[in-house]
């Protein structure tokens, strides 16, 4: 689409562009070019499934108010154009009671319908509300570090970095916090995101209803390693999941205060593995895990006397590459 002048006049061009764009967007959505496991447009569980359907239902209802604008505006411009337009010119016409009622009434009705949908959907997909299921949920404690995620399975005594396996068909109940800055936990194909902050705990629920590998990431910018801060959620059949837990138990390093201090420094998952002397080719796995690690992390910010930068593992003072404050390193793009 180049910048060119069309003979039929600008209104027509502008109009066509608007419609083209709308179609382009719709086509993008429907063509299925979304990579599997990356987005709620290829949902892997009921929560993301509902969110996808909300997306389309809300759009469809809204179109009742929006389509008339997209269709009528070009028609009006065409019909009432100064040169050759067929419409009757009424210079002082500026009010119509019927039109006025429609203009206010229709949006009010649509918004009323949308609001009912919104309230119902929001209460139904509350991340604090457990997923109704006969199966006992898998408990996962997630800790956001710079720039990686630590997943603790307290009932299994294992922990992993940037990789989490969950059994298919079993609800997963997350408790999340951060031992760095503010981050946001998103596994789009399974459920929407939830923020995590140091000293605070949030919750999230999700469930996979098919096996698959689902991309997860932090979506809240948190510095140098942000773009690479990705993780994978593997939804496995029950037996495979148990085998995965066993492998983690066998291969794991113990996770206690000393190991955790190394892990929590600003680094990527593989940099952390290197620092801990583990293989950098696969995600870090820990077993056994210090009991109450999650609570310890959560409470470190509530102690009297506070948590100074030197006591905050995500802080810049711990970073190898950012050892000096950025301003003094002259980092106008100088960081490799």
């Amino acid at each position: 689409m180049k910048c060119r002048v069309m003979p039929c006049g600008y209104a027509d061009t502008v109009t066509r562009r608007g419609l083209q764009s709308a179609l382009l967007l719709t086509a993008a959505l429907l063509s299925g070019c979304t990579p599997q496991g990356n987005s709620f447009f290829t949902p892997g569980g009921p929560v993301a499934q509902s969110e996808q359907s909300h997306f389309f239902v809300i759009a469809a209802i809204s179109l009742v108010a929006i389509l008339p604008v997209l269709i009528l505006t070009p028609l009006i411009v065409w019909r009432y154009r100064r040169h050759g337009g067929k419409g009757r010119y009424v210079r002082d016409w500026d009010y119509s009671r019927i039109l006025e009622m429609g203009m206010w009434g229709v949006p009010v009705l649509i918004v009323a319908v949308l609001t009912m949908q919104l309230v119902r959907n929001t209460l139904e997909l509350d991340p604090y509300r457990p997923i109704a299921s006969e199966v006992e949920p898998l408990r996962v404690e997630a800790v956001a570090l710079n720039w990686k995620w630590l997943f603790i399975l307290p009932d299994h005594g294992i922990a992993t970095v940037d990789e989490l396996a969950i059994p298919v068909g079993v609800p997963v109940a997350f408790r999340l916090t951060s031992d760095s800055g503010m981050q946001s936990f998103l596994v789009s194909a399974l459920a929407g995101q939830i923020y995590v902050m140091p000293g605070m705990a949030t919750r999230q629920v999700l469930m996979a209803d098919r096996p698959g590998s689902f991309a997860g990431r932090n979506t809240q910018f948190n510095g140098r390693g942000f773009a690479g801060q990705r993780f994978v959620v593997e939804a496995l059949p029950k037996n495979d999941f148990e085998a995965w837990v066993e492998r983690a138990r066998d291969a794991g390093h113990p996770l206690e205060a000393g190991t955790y201090a190394v892990l929590a420094k600003p680094s990527s998952g593989s940099e952390a593995a290197q620092a801990l002397g583990a293989s950098i080719d696969r995600p870090l796995r820990f077993a056994p895990v210090q009991a109450d690690l999650f609570t310890t992390i959560l409470h470190r910010y509530m102690r009297p006397g506070g948590a100074p930068p030197t006591g905050t593992p995500g802080a810049v003072v711990h970073s190898k590459t950012n050892g000096m404050p950025p301003g003094h390193a002259g980092t106008h793009g100088a960081t490799p």
């Binding site: 929006i66 949908q117 946001s184 998103l186 929407g192």
Partner: peptide, 24 residues
């Protein structure tokens, strides 16, 4: 024309359950 399309996505974003997905 364009603002109206933006309005559509705005209404979608007003829904917390959709915002959970497309926020950020």
């Amino acid at each position: 024309m364009l603002f109206t399309i933006g309005g559509l996505t705005g209404i979608q974003l007003a829904n917390p359950t959709i915002s959970y997905q497309v926020h950020n």
